[in-house]
Amino acid sequence: MTLTPDSGTLTAPLRTAVIIGSSRDGRFAPVVGDWFLARAAADPDLDTTPIDLATTELPHTFGAPAPAVEAVGSVLAEADAFVVVTPEYNHSYPGTLKNFIDLHHSEWQAKPVGFVSYGGVSGGLRATEHLRTVFAELHAVTVRDTVSFHNPWQRRDDAGALIGDPAADTAAKTLLNQLVWWGETLRTARAARPYPG
Rank of each mutant, 00 (worst) to 15 (best):
T142A: 10
H105P: 05
G183T: 09
E70P: 05
S106D: 15
G95T: 04
A168F: 02
D158C: 08
N151M: 14
T11E: 14
A68D: 13
I101S: 00
N151P: 05
G63L: 08
I163F: 00
P194A: 13
V85T: 03
L176Y: 05
V84Y: 01
R15L: 12
Q109D: 05
I19M: 03
L10E: 13
A110W: 09
V18T: 05
H105K: 14
H105V: 11
T16S: 03
P5M: 06
P30I: 04
L53W: 01
E137C: 09
N99S: 06
L179I: 04
H139T: 12
N151D: 12
D145W: 11
H91G: 07
E78L: 15
P44D: 09
A71W: 13
P30Q: 08
P152K: 03
A71Q: 15
A81V: 04
F82Q: 00
G160F: 07
T128I: 11
V180P: 10
D169L: 13
D80T: 04
E57R: 09
G164C: 07
A40C: 12
H60V: 13
F82G: 01
V85Y: 00
D52I: 03
L76M: 08
A191F: 07
H130F: 06
P59L: 10
A81Y: 01
W182V: 05
